[in-house]
């Protein structure tokens, strides 16, 4: 909890400012919407976080979102496949993409930045080619499948706020990944790998397997998130669906306390980080800054958040060193 304090403060501050200066922030409709977007982006950010913890990076998340998201209605509507075949197939494809990244990075020792940068171009290109660059959508059908993302639950005492169903997979993922890092041997070993891969290898940690696993989880979550996104919005253009989503995911993980140097995990922080970014996007519109400023504001806030975090960390490290010296 202490680790997440900084990002929680930032989150609360941005919420307060928006509530005071903007109209309609505290309406049930807006909050429901925010929850939905936070849940979807958190799922991507958790995947990005797992890779970052392992000392890597994944720039292909947005393109995997696009490929998985576009393939789902394409197979369901254009090719008439059954949802029972499409969903497992798309998830398996996403996991295979992660496996491909992991193998290139651990066996061929290519740099993660380059491998996933190529992935970013590759999967979007494939998605556009497959669909002939045509918009893909459910055309009002498949309501039952889409309800995975569209269902809302009433919550007592919260007025017209309705809890989106996407919160269910998010909570499950947060619990699983949280337990993975705190309770399982592989989680501990993944943290060790991110901190010092050599030392982990010398101590007998199967670092190549763990790193590959991290990329598989990341792409799998990106594919799953891509499906939820398309279920949510109904139709999308292969040329721009999922653009920049990898940056939102990475930014959320870093804001949430996963250092790009690897070895630091904070699962709750990642979710709060994703929420902060979504509130910020809404705030720009509600406060009336004009949506052209969106990227500039997000970039600025991100920079301030990261700098403040680093300064606080340095300060507390110095304090800890001084107290330990005095105890001596």
């Amino acid at each position: 909890m202490k680790k997440s304090l900084g990002i929680i403060c930032l989150f609360v501050a941005i919420c307060l400012i928006t509530a005071i200066y903007g109209d309609g922030f505290l309406t049930g409709f807006n909050l429901t919407n925010l929850t939905q977007r936070t849940a979807l982006f958190s799922i991507l950010a958790l995947g990005a976080g797992v890779v970052i913890v392992a000392g890597g990076i994944d720039l292909s998340i947005g393109s995997v979102v696009c490929l998985a998201g576009i393939m789902t209605p394409w197979l369901l509507v254009e090719h008439g496949w059954s949802a029972w075949a499409v969903i497992p197939l798309v998830l398996a494809m996403s996991a295979t993409i992660g496996l491909f990244h992991g193998v290139l990075i651990t066996r061929l020792r290519l740099q993660p930045f380059l491998v996933t940068l190529c992935g970013l171009l590759l999967y979007r290109g494939i998605a556009r080619w497959m669909t002939g660059d045509q918009s893909q959508g459910f055309q009002g059908e498949f309501e039952d499948v889409r309800s995975i993302a569209l269902a809302r639950f009433d919550v007592p005492f919260l007025g017209d706020y309705r809890l989106p169903a996407t919160v269910i997979p998010l909570v499950i993922l947060v619990v699983l990944i949280g337990l993975f890092f705190s309770r399982t041997v592989w989680g501990r070993w993944l943290l060790a790998t991110g901190r010092n891969e050599n030392a982990a290898r010398y101590s007998g940690v199967p670092t190549a397997w763990l790193t590959t696993g991290a990329y598989v989880v990341c792409s799998l979550l990106a594919g799953f998130g891509g499906m939820l996104f398309i279920f949510d919005i109904g139709s999308a253009q292969p040329s721009d669906f999922g653009n920049f989503y990898e940056l939102y995911a990475i930014a959320a993980a870093v804001l949430g306390g996963c250092s790009l140097r690897g070895g630091d995990a904070n699962v709750l922080g990642i979710v709060v980080g994703a929420a902060t970014l979504q509130v910020l996007r809404t705030a720009i519109i509600l406060v009336g800054l004009g949506s052209q400023l969106e990227f500039a504001v997000i970039g600025g806030v991100l920079l301030i958040g990261i700098a403040a975090d680093e300064l606080v960390r340095r300060y507390s490290a110095r304090r800890a060193e001084q107290t330990s010296r005095m105890q001596h």
């Binding site: 309770r183 399982t184 041997v185 501990r188 060790a192 101590s203 007998g204």
Partner: peptide, 13 residues
């Protein structure tokens, strides 16, 4: 680090 691997209980520490 090495001990938890050798003494894991169904994957858990």
């Amino acid at each position: 680090l090495a001990w938890i691997g050798q003494h894991r209980q169904r994957g858990l520490v």
